[in-house]
Simulated scan of single mutants.
Amino acid sequence: MLAKRKEEFELYQEVPAVKSVEIPQPKLNTTLRAKCFILVVLLSIMAMFTIIRSAENVSRGYELVSIKAQADKLERSNEQLKLDIAYMKSPQRIKQIATQDLGMVVPKEVYFASQKTQ
């Protein structure tokens, strides 16, 4: 039994350590990293500028549509006012107001004065 334990002990003995070979770390290229960072920043700024310009164009488009709608509404209102003016100036309306509201009458005979030249 003691011999058997010795054999088992031999099985679990540590294996001599292998010498580790150090892998050299690559040297970081900081100038390339800085150039890439500057490129990313410039591209981001250009993208933001493009987005801001697009947003301004869209808002100006909406404003233009709103102003055109307001101009159309004012033109319709102007046409309605022109019709109202024409109606107010009509001789039939003036005659109706004179006879009904003011109590005037249309004369039966109409006299014209003429100037005689000598």
Rank of each mutant, 00 (worst) to 15 (best):
L32S: 02
E10C: 05
L83C: 03
I52P: 09
Q80Y: 14
Q100K: 08
I51E: 10
K89T: 00
S114K: 05
D72S: 06
K35T: 14
L28I: 09
K19N: 11
E79K: 12
A69P: 00
Y87T: 03
K68C: 08
E14G: 14
I94K: 14
L81K: 02
L39D: 03
I67S: 05
K89G: 00
E75I: 06
N78F: 15
K6P: 01
L42M: 05
I23W: 03
E56W: 10
K35W: 04
M88A: 15
I67H: 07
K116H: 06
V105C: 03
L81S: 05
Q13V: 04
S114L: 06
A71M: 10
L11T: 12
K108N: 13
V18Q: 05
D84V: 09
A69K: 01
Q25F: 04
Q70T: 01
V21R: 10
Y87L: 11
P107Y: 00
M46L: 15
Y87N: 12
E8T: 02
L28F: 06
I51A: 08
I85H: 05
A47W: 08
A47P: 02
A17V: 05
L83H: 02
I52G: 04
S59Q: 13
G61Y: 10
L28N: 08
E75T: 09
L64K: 08
S77R: 04
V41F: 03
R76A: 13
T50A: 13
T99Y: 06
K73R: 09
L64W: 04
M46Y: 09
Y12P: 00
L43T: 10
D101E: 06
Y62N: 15
R33D: 14
E79S: 10
K68T: 11
Q115P: 07
Y62Q: 12
R33C: 06
A113F: 09
V105D: 12
T31I: 04
R33P: 01
E7T: 00
E14V: 08
N29H: 00
N78D: 12
L32E: 09
T117N: 05
P16M: 11
N57R: 12
M1N: 06
C36G: 12
I85C: 04
L64H: 08
M48G: 07
S20Y: 05
Y87V: 07
K108E: 15
F49E: 03
G103P: 01
T30N: 10
Q13F: 00
R33H: 05
E7R: 00
S20G: 05
E7D: 08
A55M: 10
I85E: 08
K95A: 14
G61F: 15
T50R: 14
K82R: 15
Y111K: 02
V105P: 00
K82E: 15
V21F: 07
V110E: 02
Q80W: 10
A69Y: 03
Q96A: 10
V40E: 02
I23P: 02
I38V: 14
S77A: 15
K82V: 12
I38G: 14
P91E: 01
Q118S: 12
G103T: 08
V15E: 04
P16I: 15
M88R: 09
K73E: 15
F49W: 10
T30V: 03
V58W: 11
I23E: 09
K19S: 08
T99A: 02
M88H: 15
Y12L: 09
Q118F: 13
V58C: 06
K116R: 09
S59Y: 10
K108W: 03
P26L: 14
R33L: 07
K73G: 13
